[in-house]
Design a protein around this nucleic acid. Structure first.
Length: 485
RNA sequence: GGCGACAUAGCCAAGUGGUAAGGCAGAGGUCUGCAAAACCUCCAUUCUCCGGUUCAAAUCCGGAUGUCGCCUCCA
């Protein structure tokens, strides 16, 4: 497969360094607040990459860390009068709650910063020994950016230009304004760990280097994270790890694009963000996950509830086709009538296109387009009395179900029992519209009675009443069902 | 100021050299007691604009305009 590599600024054929083994490290959350949609996107994107690589037969080791000590956590802890450790623990738990709902799989290794302080101290010491870092009288340790030749290669920065724009904080003891902290001395009242440089805590960039090195042989095959992490976070990780080991840190750098609100970056500082909970109060988790996959992972994604409603229609249509296939397959006898080869060939094509799309830099949006081709094909066959009752039809519907299951396993969607999901979706939409399902059922029962007596005037009047409530009725051979219009 | 990304129909969106996927909305039709769903048909001679390279460009190059991001914590 091909992947866009930020380091090369183009798509490249993905080849793991070690045969069939793939090591993938993704920067996880800083645990100080509930996750927002941006976290959801990043998590879902790399979850799909994880699933896709495994699906392709690679032996994947997926590492996703938790930053459980840093300024934001300490600040939050002080605000609410808890310990930093308690805050981190709390929001790691909340992270799991959200991710489980979004069907984001657990990583193989989920290391926490505070459990690797010793590794980080050791790495810092090695960098000092090698002349890449220095300690100050106040007990801070800085990485000497100019001692690392490749600095700026990931983000395309020029070190001299960075220098000219660098902010100089008169309080610190950096030899060069570009130098960044590996170890920060503890201020009074802050959590700290003992180190050769006194009481303090690790700098943010350090943990990813230390933990990557610990849990995977370098270079990593894939290192991922949000686009904003490429500078300075990932640049600094490269400097630390490559200065330490002399080996490349990661071969493929994968960055996901941002979630935007009205074409503007969603961020805490702008205050225009939605948490995952905000969304899931109104929409099903699968709707959100599907929505996130309808755009290519590197493109900016504009979030709105209107867009989510549109995504909801899409996933409803896909599940409806799956439900239809189930209905057809529930029949017991199949006719020997002919089944056109072109239809089988069409499905062959769709399967091929789907794989090609996913292999081309994980094009989930393109792949979903092909899923709709399968949906339409299913509808066309189910529509034709001869086809749907034929043995070829049975083979076809079975195959569609298998395809949907395979595609869904990689995308992390389409894994529910269709009618169950559709009912849940309907009730979810009803709840949003303030519709009471029990009241609807009562009206449907009345209407059924009227229809039984061929009292179509009354029947239609009831349907009009329902329509006024934004409910539409469907008469099926199994009886009337309803949905939110 | 430096670096970078993006610009495709009413809306969302895929497409990185071979003649514009898909979804939503819309129009017509089949089906239906009437509907709904589903299915069928239609819906961009054209990809922000101007030049250039090429037999061939939405795709490559140069320029313009616009939008956004990074350079400070951030997925």
């Amino acid at each position: 497969m091909r992947l866009y590599n930020t380091l090369a600024r183009k798509k490249q054929e993905f080849t793991p360094a070690n045969g069939n083994d793939v090591n993938m490290y993704v920067c996880g959350i800083t645990a100080y607040d509930l996750c927002h949609i941006g976290h959801a996107r990043s998590s879902v994107v790399f979850d799909v990459l994880f699933r896709l690589l495994r699906h392709k037969g690679y032996n994947v080791t997926f590492i996703r860390n938790f930053t459980d000590i840093d300024d934001k956590i300490i600040n939050r802890a002080n605000e609410v009068g808890k310990s930093a450790a308690d805050i981190a623990k709390q929001f790691i738990n909340e992270f799991y709650v959200d991710m489980d709902r979004l069907k984001v799989l657990r990583a193989d290794v989920e290391p926490k910063c505070t459990e690797h302080i010793g590794d980080m101290i050791a790495l810092t010491q090695r960098l000092i020994d090698k002349g890449h870092a220095y300690s100050t009288t106040s007990g801070d340790v800085y990485f000497k950016v100019r001692s690392f030749e490749g600095y700026g290669k990931l983000s395309g920065r020029n070190i001299d230009e960075l220098e000219s724009g660098a902010r100089v904080d008169p309080g610190d003891e950096k030899l060069d304004p570009l130098d960044f902290a590996l170890w920060k001395s503890a201020k009074p009242g802050e959590p700290f760990w003992e180190s050769p440089w006194g009481q303090g805590r690790p700098g943010w960039h350090l943990e990813c280097s230390a933990m990557s090195e610990k849990y995977a042989p370098l270079p990593l095959d894939i290192h991922g994270g949000g686009q904003d992490l490429s500078f300075p976070h990932h640049e600094n990780e490269i400097a630390q790890s490559e200065a330490d080991t002399g080996k490349p840190f990661a071969n493929y750098w994968v960055h996901n694009g941002f979630v935007q609100i009205n074409s503007e970056k969603m961020s805490k500082s702008l205050g225009n963000f939605f948490t995952i909970r905000d969304i899931l109060d109104k929409f099903l988790p699968e709707t959100l996950r599907y929505f996130l996959l309808t755009m290519h992972y590197r493109s900016p994604l504009d979030f709105s509830f209107e867009a989510l409603e549109e995504a909801e229609k899409g996933i409803k249509r896909i599940y409806s086709a799956m439900a239809q296939a189930d209905v057809e397959l529930s029949k017991s006898s199949w006719k020997k009538s002919p089944f056109p080869e072109e239809l089988t060939a069409e499905l062959d094509q769709i399967e091929t296109h789907w794989v090609e799309a996913m292999d081309d830099d994980m094009n989930t949006a393109g792949a979903l387009g092909h899923v709709f081709s399968a949906v339409r094909l299913t509808g066309r066959i189910a529509e034709d009395k001869n086809l749907r009752k034929s043995e070829g039809g049975q083979v076809f519907f079975t195959r569609i179900k298998t395809d949907m299951a395979n595609w869904g396993a990689v995308l992390g969607i389409f894994e529910r029992e269709p009618t169950e999901f559709l009912t849940e979706l309907r009730d979810n939409r009803a709840a949003r519209a303030g519709i009471d399902p029990a009241r609807i059922q009562q009206l449907l029962d009345d209407r059924k009675e009227a229809r039984k007596n061929k009292d179509f005037d009354k029947s239609d009047a009831i349907r009009d009443e329902l329509a006024a409530m934004n409910v539409e009725v469907k008469d099926t051979p199994q009886g009337a069902t309803w949905d939110v219009a």
